[in-house]
Amino acid sequence: MTTGKHAISVLVNNQPGVLQRVSGLFGRRGYNIDSITVGASEEAGLSRMVIVTTGDEDTLEQVEKQLYKLVDVIKVVDLSANPMVDREVALIKVAAEPSLRPEVLGVVDTFRASVVDIGPGSLIVQAVGGTDKIDAIIELLKPYGIRELTRTGVTAMTRGSVK
């Protein structure tokens, strides 16, 4: 069995405590959540969670079975089993005195990121893309001094008409 990252879409009733029950299930079973995003879905009253976790096919199968046992879970889909589009957003506050800004802006432009705020000694950079892209821009901005960093976690959906 090969172990890898899996993106799982979980359609749930939008009710208080659902996120806690889903994340608790992972914790009780000893499965790690690498990232989790939750938001409204295309159906009123339902939310979609996208959970990224690491494991083999047997682990993923167990996770799916356990999720279906939760009352508010409607549908579970392994997004990574099909071609998918995944994105993440990062906001990165970089120490940038005016003399260094052209260098920082060069990194920003290379990654098709954008500057969303400028302060006297810092810039806030917004980067959107796959996890590898976000990791790469962070690495290139580290030498300038990252003062603060926040990431949304991965959100994803399958390509084309596959549901």
Score class of each variant (00 low, 15 high):
121 G>L: 14
141 L>Y: 05
81 A>N: 10
105 L>Y: 07
66 Q>L: 14
12 V>Q: 04
129 G>A: 11
66 Q>D: 04
16 P>D: 03
128 V>M: 14
6 H>F: 06
26 F>T: 02
67 L>D: 02
151 R>D: 00
82 N>A: 14
24 G>K: 01
92 I>N: 05
19 L>Q: 03
101 R>W: 09
21 R>Q: 14
136 A>S: 14
123 L>E: 02
88 E>K: 09
58 D>I: 12
22 V>C: 06
38 V>G: 02
109 D>R: 15
71 V>M: 13
81 A>L: 11
33 I>Y: 08
150 T>I: 15
156 A>R: 06
91 L>E: 02
28 R>H: 13
80 S>V: 08
38 V>T: 04
35 S>H: 01
91 L>D: 01
132 D>T: 10
147 R>L: 15
23 S>V: 04
35 S>V: 07
94 V>M: 10
109 D>S: 15
131 T>R: 13
118 I>C: 01
116 V>W: 00
46 L>I: 09
6 H>T: 08
28 R>P: 08
21 R>T: 02
137 I>F: 09
69 K>F: 06
10 V>C: 11
73 V>H: 10
139 E>H: 07
133 K>F: 11
41 S>E: 01
16 P>C: 05
103 E>D: 15
161 S>H: 12
66 Q>A: 15
103 E>N: 12
61 E>D: 12
